[in-house]
């Protein structure tokens, strides 16, 4: 499965990519903000892991844009973000995010959330 990892922090992208590799996912594309991700997204992407706060296009804007595309309507989207107030989480879920991880996260949590979306496909 090909993953699209989106974060404006090179450090966080590296951590997420390493975490994915550690749990067995090696086919990974990186993007540095929502706009970059939208340009790199295609039907071969099977899973999106995105941050929220990014320049040019935020994570929620990216998800909304993906859900408007035929090839992005059902792709599982996992948001990994520092934002953790109730209203923000609800906003993300309403935008089309399927699951939500709060930073700082552990590899176990990342695996658990990915498994929940792959084993039980996104609604």
């Amino acid at each position: 499965m090909k993953f699209l990892v989106v974060d404006d922090s090179a450090t966080m992208r590296r951590i997420v990519v390493n975490s994915l590799q550690r749990i067995g996912y090696a086919d990974i594309v990186e993007a540095e903000d929502g706009l970059d991700a939208l340009n790199k997204y295609d039907a071969s992407i099977g899973f999106v892991v995105t941050d929220w706060n990014m320049p040019n296009m935020t994570g929620t804007e990216l998800v909304q844009a993906l859900r408007q595309r035929d090839d992005g309507r059902t792709v599982p989207v996992l948001m990994v973000t520092a934002r953790s107030v109730r209203e923000d989480i609800i906003t993300a879920l309403e935008a089309g995010v399927n699951n939500y991880i709060v930073k700082p996260f552990t590899p176990q949590v990342l695996k658990e959330k990915i498994d929940s979306l792959i084993v039980a496909p996104a609604a």
């Binding site: 706060n53 040019n56 973000t81 520092a82 109730r86 709060v102």
Partner: peptide
Amino acid sequence: RRFDPNATLDDASSRQALAD
């Protein structure tokens, strides 16, 4: 758009529990 004014390292497990 680049930052969350409430970003924190504190209490990650409680915040994750709310998200869950």
